[in-house]
Design a binder for these strands. Structure first.
Lengths: 344, 344
DNA sequence: TGGCGCGCCGTAAACGTTTACGACGTTGCT
DNA sequence: AGCAACGTCGTAAACGTTTACGGCGCGCCA
């Protein structure tokens, strides 16, 4: 790179003490005279000395940072970014006080997610990893377990043995949404989801069936509507709803951005969400905030979720003792809007 | 961390050659028998040898990665920034083929941006930096110049000497928007902006005045409306417009998310954007995509912008020879919506 | 007074690479 | 035959840090 900055040797030379003492003084490890410790700290501050990360990592085998791997895909961009930003904030809040840094590793849509992770791990970029976008079976998880790398997954997966993860409480949300629909008198309740998001799709369908059964309602496969998540997917979903022979009166959309096109499609047909259809979306999303009537949906504290992930990962790095791997569903709470309907 | 992986020594031992030869064989530097090179490469593949990044960095003083620093603030999150994701994609596209990695460094809102950068720089986290959210005078830029660290700024700044930057073509957009308004018969054209975003605010105001003057229109300070960017800022902007004695017929909003509340406020007043007010927003934003009528605004290719930034930074790292630092305005193109109005 | 313990500090090895330098054997030319 | 040139490879130093180990001086107790 450039002229190297002031190193520990230079600092020691200026103070007429050995580099060993300087290191001990700054790291608080080992015995060192309180007075010289202060001298060292002051000098370090004055000369702008910052320990070289590579030297440190090389010696003690631990970078003081953790990595959050995220996939950037164009269809995800609309909803994804706020998600990771909120998460990062919560992560920072707990990591910074521990002297840990957070780095985000964005993998392009073209990258193989497994290879991307493998590279990051083997370059020893971080002490622990947060993997997102988990798939039903995910080789990344097997790999991390096998290599004994501390990690926590954001999202469930069937892969690997028991490993720590946190996932959004999809079941709880679907349960609640269906209960609200039923309470409002609806009996034909549809489910709209994206053809992507394989893992969540399975979870959503499962939860949907269970919720229906819980209320004694029959399951009609025709009411499960799958549309692409790309541009126009929402409109397609709207068309699909309108085209159904016995049109459902309520709809839960697992991918809330689909609601936008759906509103539009309904408006084109002279119908209105919140009057001719009762609609509930999954997660609160900035992209949906300008819908009228406002979309009823569920929200969560990304900041707290990030903090929780950090806690788990830190414990994982410290070495979790025998205790079972934490596996948690993250609760979400209702944000009522005007998109629901009471059936007379 | 964990048990260290297989190092270059182990690899050399298995092949009965020296570590120097192994290194040369893998890096392609120095003379080495093509046959042994192949042998080494195969063995490396087989044993899963990956050079340790810290050792490498320590020796040659260059991490093979570049860092994008971004600030996460809650008010920015609410506006649904898809900005950095699109950027990352473009950056990856050009960096990956060069063997460079990209890391995103999110600084919490509580962090001092200067200290945050300083720390990252001095820990030698990356060979080059992309700084965003530049301020009118920005100590980070002075610092980077002084330390001779390769960087490129996303956003203008008065700080430092001539340094490479790319910024959105705010002037071009405002020019075009005002021209459209004038062509449609408007003469009282207002400007709405957030009280934050200090740098852009100055640029926007300047461009606004120039554009008015270019069309022979008077500048009325009362038509420059500043509102907070927080929740409800848009409504406030709407109220401000409605409260003006001689109500403007056209409005350009520099912070496009303000349009959402503005639509709402107008609806409350029984008025409609696109009929009672001609509105143009700055940048296309997913948060605004569900507005009806669609908001006329301007868009850009984030991917290409990211690629350009990468190009500049790579050149900067390679050592720009005498040539002037690239300073570019990034063009944006119109995305017509229904929020404009023709004045009879 | 001799010895022991203790607080503080210096010395040097180690982490895993890259690379300048020189050695070695072979070839080719004079 | 002698010498230079060349291709290939081994040796060892360096990057900046942490830390095990031992040493030095001092005080305390027997």
């Amino acid at each position: 790179m450039e002229r190297r900055g002031v190193g520990i040797r230079e600092l020691a030379r200026q103070l007429n003490i050995s580099i060993g003492t300087v290191s001990r003084a700054l790291n608080g490890r080992g015995e060192v005279n309180p007075q010289t410790r202060i001298r060292v700290q002051e000098a370090a501050e004055r000369l702008g000395y910052v320990p070289n990360q590579s030297g440190r990592t090389l010696r003690q085998g631990s970078t003081r940072s953790i990595a959050l791997m995220m996939r950037i895909s164009s269809d995800r961009m609309a909803s994804g970014e706020t998600f990771f930003m909120g998460l990062s904030e919560g992560l920072q809040d707990t990591l910074a006080p521990l002297g840990l840094d957070l780095v985000l590793l964005p993998s392009g849509p073209s990258h193989d997610m497994f290879e991307f992770l493998r590279r990051a791990v083997e370059r020893q970029i971080a002490d622990g990893f947060i993997v997102t976008d988990t798939q039903r079976t995910d080789p990344r998880i097997d790999y991390l377990i096998r290599r004994r790398i501390p990690f926590v997954a954001l999202g469930r997966s069937l892969s690997g043995g028991p490993h720590p993860w946190v996932d959004l409480d999809f079941e709880g949300v679907v349960d609640d949404a269906v209960a609200r629909f039923v309470k409002a008198g609806h009996r034909r309740i549809a489910l709209g989801l994206s053809v992507r998001a394989v893992n969540n799709r399975v979870v959503a369908e499962e939860a949907y069936r269970k919720a229906l059964a819980g209320h004694g309602l029959p399951f009609d496969p025709a009411l499960v509507l799958r549309v692409p998540n790309a541009e126009g997917g929402g409109q397609e979903l709207g068309s699909a709803v309108l085209a159904l022979p016995d049109r459902p009166t309520a709809l839960f959309v697992a991918q809330e951005t689909l609601a936008i096109g759906l509103y539009r499609r309904f408006a084109e047909a002279g119908l209105a969400v919140g009057r001719d259809l009762s609609l509930i979306g999954f997660r609160r999303n900035p992209s949906c905030q300008s819908l009228t009537p406002a979309l009823t949906c569920y929200d969560l504290s990304l900041q707290k979720l990030g903090a929780r992930l950090a806690d788990i990962l830190v414990a994982e790095i410290a070495g979790r003792e025998e205790a079972a791997a934490p596996q948690e569903l993250w609760p979400m709470h209702l944000v009522p809007g005007g998109s629901e309907t009471v059936r007379g």
